[in-house]
Amino acid sequence: MTETVLVIDDAADVRALLSVALKDAGYRVVEAANGPDGLETYHAHQPDLILLDIGLGSMDGLEVCRQLRAVSSAPIIFLTSRSDEVDQLVGFAAGGDDYITKPFSAKVVVARVNSMLRRQLRMAPEERTRFEVGPLALDLESRTARLNGEPIHLTRTEFDLLTCLMENPERVCTRESLLTRVWGEWYGDSHVVEVHMSRLRNKITSAGGPKVGAVVRGVGWRLGVEA
């Protein structure tokens, strides 16, 4: 089945370029020029992935993301053209899975979309579907995370990172292994791992949980939580 990508951007030229590139790669594309239309288009077409510009008009991309996250687990990739917007993304748990800076290469955008949509296959559990370590529990089938029995809301990326860490709490996960496992073919800054690991850690500690993602200097990360 052809997967559908929703492009929400107020720049018509940007939407047109992305549409051509994604259609050329075999995707079905639906477009919206602002936040409210984007939400409406989401509900009408139920896309598999959303490319979302941050700098929209009256309803900015972060607010659109929050509203989408309330109803959808589809991957969201932010489009941003300013470094301060990237900072905002890093510091704000808006629920996006990735970001691409403008100007962009259409080829890279397509590669990121491919990679994000293939993640679910790579993340599919071979046998185990539940992991419990200390106060943390993951259910891969329902994609729910719990801390002391209480659900905690993680983005898709955070959930996948935590899954890698919890599968074998004693194993050290290298940056390369996490990039491959969680992001697939990655063309961006490899520090994306630190960014999302930090967000995951903050989210769990803010909920009263342990500090996950212990740094093993020069090697990578391990879960860092006692069973």
Partner: peptide
């Protein structure tokens, strides 16, 4: 300027960008 910056670069209009 912010808006056209992203568009011009994405369309490979490097000198304009």
């Amino acid at each position: 300027a912010h808006a056209v910056h992203g568009t011009l670069g994405s369309y490979q209009l490097d000198a304009a960008h």
